[in-house]
Design a protein around this nucleic acid. Structure first.
Lengths: 340, 340
DNA sequence: GGTGCGATTTGGAGCGCTCCAAAGAAGCGT
DNA sequence: ACGCTTCTTTGGAGCGCTCCAAATCGCACC
C-alpha cells in the first residue's frame, strides 16, 4: 500500500527502495534482458510497493520516441473503422505502442489539421486509413502504412499498404447473384476510397458473364441517402433490374427504401447485397447479404507491417491484400420473375 | 521554407532567429498577454520560418501538466458515444486540451485497464461516460466529470455530472404514444446505465395515465438481439400490445423484426419508439421515431463543466440534466384497431 | 593467487520546455 | 532630470527519464 499524497514517486525513489541505481530501474522498465533476476525482482517489488508509474513525458523527451502511432480514420460513425482500430490495437498493445486516433470528419468540423496534430504529438509512425486533404501528407517523414485503401491520392512513394481486396469482394457479390440466376444486376457506387475498386469488381464479373454493367451514383457519396438516390436512379432507368450490388451496407439500406417505395421487396422481387458486413447488416430486420472485408484483420496486418517497418526502415515496401468473404443472409435469393 | 533534415528546431532556435530569449518564445507559445506585439510577431514569424513544432513531451515534463483529458466511453460502435466525443472535442479543442479516448469494450478485449492507462498517461482530468469495472476509479485523484450517466456505481463522491434526462425522454416517448391513442404500451429494457431511468420514465408516464406498465427484457442487455428477444417476450405475453417503447434504437430495430415475424407492421399494427436518435433511426427504411438525448450537447456541456472544475478545483459539484426531445418519424402512428 | 573477459551495474550529461526571481525598459509625476 | 511604478524580458534551475561510457562484479583458467 503506497503512502499517497506525497509527490508521485520517480525512478529515483524506486531505485532507493530497491537498493539499486536509477539506471538499473530504467533498464528493468524498458525490459532489458541484461538484468539479473534478483535485481529485477527487487525493482519490481519496489515499483509495486510505491505505486510507481513511469512518466511517459520524461521517457519521450529523453528517448526522442513516443511509442505512439497516429491513426487517421475517416469517421468513427463508420463501424468499418472501429473494427480496423480494434485490429490495429490488438497488435499495437502487446508491442507497447499506443494508438492516437484522429477522425477526419471530426477534425474537419473543428477545423484542425489531423496530420499536423500527429506531428505536434511527435508520433513514431502513421497509419493512414483515410484520405486526408491533398498535400497534408507531404512533409511527413515518419514511417507510414496505408490501411484499408489500396493507394493514396498523390504521394505514390513506396509506402506499405495493407487492404482488403475490394475488387474481389464486389466480384464475389456479383457472382453470388449470377449464381442465383440474376442477369439484370445493377451497382450503386459513390466517390470514395474503396468505391472505385468495388465498382470495378462488379463490372469485371458482369463482363465475364457476358452482361452489361449498369452503374449509378457516380456523382454522389456513399451514405444511406446516396444509396437511396442511386437506387432510385437505377430502378427508374432500368425497372427490369432484379438485383443490386451496393457500394456498402448503408447504401444497401438506402436501396431497400427505394425498393419499398416502388412496391418491391427484397429478396422476393429484387435481391440486394451490401458491402462491409457491418453490424447493421446482421440486424434481423435487415439481414443483408454482405461482403466481409475483414477490417479487423486488415487492421492487425497493418499494425504488423508497421512494426516490421519500424524494425527495418529500409526494407522493400510491403503490399498485402486480404481476401474478403461473402456472408449470405436473406436479402438475396433466386430470381423470381426474370421477365419483370 | 524551413531547411529540412537538420535536427528538429527547438525553442532556442526560434529564440535566436527572432532575436529574443527562449523564455520569451515560451511565453508566446503559451499565449501570454504580457508580450509586446512586436516581439510576438517576430517570434511567430520565426516559428513559421523554421517550421517549429513545440514538443509536448518537454512541455508536459516541465509543467507537470499534459493538457490531456482521458475520456472513457463504452463502445465506439455506439454512435451515441461518437457524438458525445464530438461535443466534448468541440469545447476541448479551443481550450487547447487533447482528448485521449478509451473504449471499454476494446480495452476489455485486449485485457488492459483503461483507467490505469490514463493514469500512466498522466491525464489532467477524466470524463467518465461509461461504467468501468468496479474499483477501477478508486485511487484516482484527478478532476472527473461523469457524462451521459446520472451516477457512477459506487463512488458517490460529489463528482460533476452532465447527462441527458433519460427519464424525461422516455416519458416524452410514452406520452407521444398515449397522445396517438395507444393504451397497450410495452417497454423493452435492459441492464445498462441509462436503462433504469428510461424505464422509470415510461412507468411514470403510464401510471400518470392510469395504465399499468408492461416491461420486458430486465434480464438482458441492450443490443439488437436483446431488443428482439424482449419484444418477442412482450408480444407473446400481451398480443394486444399496440405500441412499444424501446430502450434504444437498436432494440427498436430488434422489435421491428419481432413484429414482422408475427405478421405485424409498424406503424400500421404496432407503433415503435426508439431512443438516442442514432443515424440508424433516420434511415428511410426504418424511419424510427426516437428520443434525441442530444449527446453532442451533453458532451459539450461536460467539457465545459470539466474546464470549470479545472479552474475552480473546489467549487461545489455541478449537476446538469439536458432536456431531450422527441423526433417523430414514421414508426409511430395512431392506434388502428384498439381491440386486436 | 593473479589475469582476463563477459555480464551487470552505475554516474553523468542531456532531452526541450516551464516557471520563478530578478533585471531591464518605459512611462509618470514632480 | 530623478526616483518610482509598471510592464517586459531574461537567465537559471529543474521536470523524470534514457543512453553511453566507464566501473564493478563474478568467475573460469592458467
Amino acid at each position: 500500500m503506497p503512502t499517497d499524497a506525497n509527490p508521485r514517486p520517480t525512478i529515483y525513489d524506486v531505485a532507493q527502495r530497491a537498493g539499486v541505481s536509477k539506471s538499473l530501474v530504467s533498464l528493468v522498465l524498458r525490459g532489458s534482458d541484461h538484468v539479473s533476476p534478483a535485481r529485477r525482482e527487487a525493482v519490481e517489488a519496489a515499483i509495486e510497493e510505491l505505486g510507481y508509474r513511469p512518466s511517459r513525458a520524461a521517457a519521450a523527451l529523453a528517448s526522442q520516441r513516443t511509442r505512439t502511432v497516429g491513426v487517421l480514420i475517416d469517421d468513427f460513425h463508420n463501424p468499418w473503422f472501429v473494427e480496423l482500430l480494434a485490429g490495429l490495437r490488438s497488435v499495437l498493445d502487446p508491442a507497447r505502442y499506443t494508438a492516437s486516433v484522429a477522425d477526419l470528419q471530426l477534425e474537419a468540423a473543428t477545423g484542425s489539421n489531423p496530420v499536423e496534430g500527429f506531428l505536434a504529438q511527435h508520433v513514431d509512425a502513421l497509419v493512414v486509413a483515410a484520405e486526408p486533404a491533398p498535400g497534408t501528407l507531404d512533409g511527413v517523414d515518419v514511417p507510414m502504412v496505408v490501411a484499408g485503401m489500396r493507394e493514396l491520392g498523390l504521394p505514390d512513394d513506396g509506402a506499405d499498404v495493407v487492404a482488403g481486396d475490394d475488387e474481389l469482394g464486389a466480384r464475389l457479390a456479383t457472382k453470388h447473384l449470377l449464381g442465383l440466376g440474376h442477369r439484370r444486376i445493377g451497382h450503386l457506387t459513390g466517390r470514395s476510397g474503396p468505391g472505385a475498386h468495388r465498382r470495378r469488381g462488379y463490372e469485371a464479373a458482369m463482363r465475364d458473364a457476358g452482361l452489361e454493367p449498369a452503374v449509378t451514383g457516380e456523382a454522389g457519396g456513399t451514405s444511406e441517402a446516396d444509396g437511396y438516390a442511386a437506387a432510385c436512379a437505377l430502378l427508374d432507368a432500368r425497372p427490369e433490374t432484379t438485383a443490386i450490388v451496393a457500394g456498402n451496407d448503408v447504401m444497401a439500406v438506402g436501396a431497400l427504401a427505394a425498393l419499398r417505395e416502388r412496391g418491391l421487396a427484397a429478396p422476393a422481387d429484387v435481391s440486394v447485397v451490401g458491402h462491409d458486413d457491418s453490424p447493421l447488416a446482421a440486424y434481423r430486420f435487415l439481414g443483408l447479404t454482405s461482403v466481409d472485408g475483414h477490417s479487423r484483420e486488415v487492421g492487425a496486418a497493418a499494425a504488423r507491417a508497421l512494426l516490421a517497418r519500424l524494425d527495418h526502415p529500409d526494407a522493400p515496401p510491403h503490399r498485402e491484400l486480404l481476401e474478403p468473404s461473402l456472408v449470405v443472409r436473406h436479402s438475396t435469393g433466386p430470381v423470381r420473375d426474370a421477365s419483370r
